[in-house]
Simulated assay, not measured.
Amino acid sequence: MIFRKVIEINKPDRLYDRGDRFTLWGSCFSTRLRDYLMGALYDVSDSPYGIMYNPLSMAQGMERLLSDDAPREDELILRDGRWHSMMHHGAFSHSSKVVALQQMQAAFERSRAALQETSLLILTFGTAWVYERQGEVVNNCHKLPAEDFTRRRLSIDEIVSVWGRLIPTLTEQAPGIRILLTVSPIPHYRDGAHESRLSKAILLLAAERLTELFPDRVSYFPSYEIMQDELRDYRFYDRDMAHPSDQAAEYIIERFREYYLREESGPALQKWEKVRKQLNHRPLTDSRESLRAYYDSLLSTLLEIRAELPRDYLDHEIQRIQEIRSQYL
């Protein structure tokens, strides 16, 4: 007997491996998938604006990227001693206007270059509710007064219209790109339970319409449906009873891996499987000589892996191990 519903997933027209580049934009779930891919040494790029929740802000950000409309100084606002951009997540904000702008522009240039080489663009739509300030939809409110904003819900036609115009331009500039749409499994209970369901319904129908308009370029991955129907028990939710637990997120990512990623092997990956387990564990010794030898060996292996698979993630780990190793020189 079968005691749960297993969501069917449409097979993609191709599988992806570490020779492909993945670009991920969207909500918190997009970040979880990005972290998995990075940790598995896939070639990954993310949004130059940070976490993004609504499809209209994502479209506006993509339009700017395609037209090389980089962040400008006159777009920054000062709030509580920090400079912010209404297009960017708070991770880009800084007490120095110069530093904030430099961070935003550097991320923009990295993403613009990466987009040309992207094989699979994964867009995670989080909510159809948006906030407008001075007639413009913002990506982040940065805790400005509520009276500065007008809140409204996007329509299906509005989402389809803006992305319907954008996708041909995107595929023209990045001819090899495929787009995978998904709806975040995280409800927005701040909007109310009913409003959250309506929001998700709009996103689901908009995604369906886009797959129908661009069947050779756009497909859909049912992360929302897997959470709602396969993992419907509260044991699969975090303490806030809204976000998926680590186990649930790992399961959804496993379903993605099963259908979209090609199994690979090789010396670098075999070394990585062994060394990644060591990275977060200190060896059981107090001998400085033994610790130095341990981190020397670990660093040497990481450098060998990076020579075959150059990744920013590996650069970060190499720098971290170098800092630890310096304590035992």
Rank of each mutant, 00 (worst) to 15 (best):
I2A: 11
I2R: 14
R4A: 02
P12G: 03
D13M: 12
L15K: 07
R21L: 04
W25M: 10
C28F: 08
R32T: 14
D35T: 13
D35K: 15
L41D: 09
M52Q: 13
Y53H: 06
P55A: 08
L56K: 07
G61S: 08
L65E: 05
L66W: 04
L66P: 04
L66H: 09
S67L: 11
A70F: 00
P71K: 01
R72K: 13
D74C: 09
R79N: 15
D80A: 06
G81T: 10
H84V: 07
M86E: 07
H88A: 07
H94K: 01
S95E: 15
S95K: 08
V99S: 13
A113E: 12
T118Q: 04
T118I: 03
T118C: 06
L121N: 01
I122Q: 01
I122K: 02
L123F: 02
T124Q: 06
C141V: 13
C141F: 01
L144S: 07
E147A: 14
D148P: 00
R152G: 00
R152Q: 09
S155W: 09
I159G: 01
S161K: 13
S161W: 04
W163D: 08
L166P: 12
P168M: 11
P175K: 00
I179F: 03
S184N: 14
P187T: 07
Y189S: 04
R190P: 01
E195W: 08
S196F: 08
L198I: 14
K200D: 12
L203N: 10
L204S: 10
L205I: 09
E212P: 02
P215H: 10
D216T: 13
Y220K: 12
S223F: 01
Y224Q: 09
R232A: 13
D233N: 11
R235N: 13
D240Y: 01
H243F: 13
H243N: 11
Q247N: 15
A248R: 01
I253K: 05
I253A: 09
R257G: 05
Y259H: 15
Y260Q: 03
E263P: 03
L269P: 01
Q278K: 14
S300D: 15
T301Q: 12
L303W: 00
L309M: 13
P310T: 12
I318E: 09
Q319M: 11
R325N: 10
